[in-house]
Each structure stands twice: as structure tokens, then as C-alpha cells.
Design a protein around this nucleic acid. Structure first.
Lengths: 256, 256
DNA sequence: GCCAATAGTTGACCTAGATCAAAAACAACA
DNA sequence: TGTTGTTTTTGATCTAGGTCAACTATTGGC
């Protein structure tokens, strides 16, 4: 209610064509006039604060959302009040794609910090994509990319150990921030240890211990939520090079 | 090469409008004339045998595939020659959606048994979806559904124990077969224990032991790859009701 | 600025499921 | 029909990471 959030409140009024995120967002690669058309259907909404829900699982699906500032997590219920964090969303990233199929949201989304989104009514977007081939293609790609992200996470949860998971998480975060023009080696984690652990399928305590260990090994400097990556290569190595101990027999390329 | 596969070779020539799978596949809900148009772009290909690759990760992306008969698995590399099975595909299900984004396949697909697919050149399909709104909508739904499937698997890998995973797997399989008009309680698994274990993030031995245990508990009857589900409700209970031991404090509905 | 609640760290211990090993059951095939 | 290679099963052991517990920051509310 209070007008103290001047900065973000101003910034969210910016039209797509002037938005610094356009290169990461839907307008990517659209002709100027098409951006105008997209612009017309986008609604700007007021900021959300930490913990505020953007949508809940089961909610009727009406719109997709693009993060404009701040960050979000999405999570699915997992029986007995538990939940599985599915992803963290940074500016320019889309939320709600999983709801298209069933017509209702399959997961919930909440803000990790003070954040703003653009709302895109899906029915309108669909009309538009039928008219603008490049936008249609872009939508297909976005949906496909989401599948790719899930695939990565599946490999992580199915096949990687704790160390590899956290290293992969940090590097992924680093890359995504870098794409947004932020430092790839010095950043702030907007989510709690608990949320990281949940996302990676690990206990909070394990996350905490790993951060300590990574720090002892000179890979990172951790100070609460402030992270400095000191040795990117070292982290990369952690991901790729484990399992090297027990070599498998040469195993010709064949069916399983 | 040999013509002994008469049955499936005949069946795969059937046009979409006569295909028994149309209700599960792309034509779902299309007007007759639109099905014709779709039909024109679909290529029918020869059958693949167990272990044959439909595509490999890294292959240039050109087409989507619909399983016509038989079954497939998709799997992604996971460092050091290991792989993570991402999904099993039954007749009517689409393969290759994850490749749209990058323009090359992000995972590999191989036949689990003698199988046939319809090939749908994606560029042609895109043109068509721009012309037929209901087809475009259907494509969005299919992509979104794939995300939903991944979400389910993520929850499984991130939060469920071995017992719950296998029970969920069996029930999912049962439901999908039932949709295809096959028995929900008596079926044949086309994949090996090893592949099931890989998919569920468990060791082969664990799968084997669980099958034995489920059988002892009267939940299933297992005879190699032939499965009979004797107590569907019992399996359902396994999924939902565990973690009931250590009750969590009432915990008001709140942010994490 | 103080208190209560929440988040993070650290250590001790425990357990689900992995790994190792070996036998048994199949399947392919000459 | 025997041989060989694969898949499955079963048992014995090991361990990564979970769980419990106690303590220490931080943070937010007033």
C-alpha cells in the first residue's frame, strides 16, 4: 500500500519495448510492431513480498507470468504436507507453463523476496501466437526449455551425490545471473538453506555442511546468503569428475 | 528385412483418421478435414527392434515421433557413461519435445521391443498449428503435460522412498495401459529391472527385493516381466500413507 | 534496544538403500 | 541340447546422507 517501493513500482510500468529484460523474455526476436501487440495484452501488477503466493496449486489457470524483478520458487505438494521445490525463477523467466495442460496450476509459486511480475493472459497470448509465427515458435521453445530444465534436475536427483548437486546448483545460478548482466562470481541467494536442500533433495544440515566444506576447500566464500565463487573450475570438476574411482569396463555402445 | 512382421507393418499404414490411437494422439478433438491435413504431413516408417535407437542425444532435431505400437524409453547421459532414464513411452505418446528448444535432441530414445512410430516433421507441424487453433492448443497442452510428467517424477525422486516409488510406477503404468483399452491389472513390462531401477533412481537389487516383498504382501503377482496387480488400493495406500509415523506439528498453512 | 521466533551450524548417531558377491533362472543360438 | 551371456534373485556388508539434539547467529516486531 505505502508508496515506499517507488523504484520497483516505477520500473514495472515500463512497456516491453523499453524493458531491459526483453532479450530474455517473450519479445525476444520479435519485430517492433509485434512487440507492440504483445505489449497490449501484458498486464502490469503490483509487487509481491517475500512469502506472497503468485498462484497456488489447484488455482484456475488464466495467465502466465514473467518475473520482472526479484525471484520466485515453485513447488509441488508431496503428500503429508511436504513439498518439493521444483525451480527458482529469476527475472525474465516464465512461470505457469505446467498449468496449460490441466487448466489449473499443478504447482504453487511464491515470492522469495520483494518481486514484480508481468501477467500474460494465456488465451490472448494463444491468439497472438497463431498470428505471429516467430512468437509461436518462441512459445514452443520456452515450453521445450522448461522440459530441458526438468530433465537436468532429474539427472541431478537420480544420479548425483550431494556434493555434485550443490556444485551444479551454484554454477547454474551463476550462469543465469551472468546472463542478466550480474556478477557470475559474487551474488546473493534469495532462498533459504532449507529451500535449497528441498530443491536438491537433501537435508538442510547437508547443505550447511557442504557450504562449510566448499569454503574450507577454497571453492567458495559463504557469508550467510552472500556467495562468492572463488574457483569456478574447481566446482565444474566436482560435477564432472566424480565416479572416476570405480571405472566401468569399456562397455561397447549398445542397448542397456 | 524379412516380411514376418506383417501385422504391424500393415497397421502402421493406417491413416490418422482410421488409427485406433487417434483419441490419444495429436488428432484428438480435430475436425475431420483438419485430421486430413495433419495426415498429409505424417510419415510412416518401418518398425524398430529392441535396442534400436529412434534418435540420439545431440542429433539434429527435425521431427517429433508418436509411438504407434510397442514402447520406448528416453534417457539422458549423466556423466561417466552413466545414464538416467527419463520416461517410458507407450502407444499414442509423443517423443522429442525436449529437442525443440535447442534444435537438437537433448536425450536419446530407444525401442524396448519391436515398435513402430509415426514421424511428424516439426516445421510442417508448426505451420499447421498456426492455421488450426485447436491443434496449436493441443500442442501447448502436450508440451505442458510433459512438464507435468517431469514434475511428478521430480517429486518421486526428491521425496519418496523406494517402496513408494515402485508402487507409483506400477500404478502409473496400469493407468496408462487402461487408457489404451488394456487390462489395468494384468500386463507385461517391456523394460528390464535395471531400466526400472534407473528410472526410479534405485539399484536393480532394490527393485528385485521390492517385487518380492510386494508379492509376499499379496499386492502383486510377479512372474518375470508379467505383472498382476492384486490389490490396487493397497498400492495406492503405500504411496499416500507413509511418513505417517512421525507426525508433524499442525503447522499453519504458511510460506516455508 | 529487547525478546521471541526463525535460520543456520555442528556433532553424534542411525538407517535406507547401495554395493559386493554368488548363485539361479532364462534366453539366444549353433 | 549344451554353451554362453544376460537378467534376476538373494544374502552380507557398507556408507552417504538423514535424523536428532543442542547451540549460535539473525531477524523482525514492538
Amino acid at each position: 500500500m505505502k508508496q515506499s517501493t517507488v523504484i520497483s513500482f516505477e520500473s514495472i510500468r515500463v512497456a516491453c519495448r523499453h524493458c531491459t529484460l526483453s532479450a530474455l523474455c517473450l519479445p525476444m526476436g520479435l519485430a517492433a510492431e509485434d512487440v507492440e501487440r504483445l505489449d497490449e495484452i501484458v498486464k502490469r501488477t503490483r509487487p509481491l513480498h517475500r512469502g506472497d503466493m503468485l498462484f497456488r496449486d489447484g488455482d484456475h489457470f488464466r495467465s502466465l507470468y514473467v518475473v520482472k524483478t526479484g525471484s520466485f520458487k515453485t513447488f509441488a505438494p508431496s503428500g503429508e504436507g511436504g513439498e518439493q521445490v521444483l525451480s527458482f525463477h529469476l527475472p525474465g523467466e516464465l512461470l505457469g507453463l505446467d498449468a496449460i495442460d490441466q487448466g489449473e496450476h499443478a504447482c504453487s509459486a511464491s515470492a522469495l523476496e520483494t518481486s514484480a511480475v508481468c501477467e500474460i493472459p494465456f488465451a490472448r497470448l494463444e491468439e497472438l501466437t497463431a498470428l505471429i509465427p516467430s512468437l509461436q515458435h518462441h512459445m514452443y521453445r520456452l515450453l521445450s526449455k522448461e522440459i530441458g530444465h526438468d530433465t537436468d534436475l532429474l539427472v541431478l536427483l537420480g544420479k548425483k551425490n550431494a556434493e555434485e548437486r550443490l556444485a551444479a546448483f551454484l554454477l547454474d545460478f551463476s550462469k543465469r545471473l551472468h546472463k542478466r548482466g550480474l556478477s557470475a562470481t559474487d551474488f546473493h541467494l534469495s532462498m533459504s538453506r532449507h529451500e535449497i536442500g528441498n530443491y536438491l533433495g537433501l537435508a538442510v544440515e547437508t547443505i550447511s555442511r557442504l557450504f562449510t566444506r566448499f569454503q574450507e576447500d577454497g571453492l567458495v566464500r559463504v557469508e550467510r546468503k552472500h556467495i562468492e565463487l572463488l574457483n569456478l573450475q574447481g566446482l565444474e570438476n566436482l560435477i564432472a569428475s566424480s565416479h572416476l574411482g570405480r571405472r566401468q569396463p569399456p562397455q561397447r555402445q549398445q542397448q542397456t
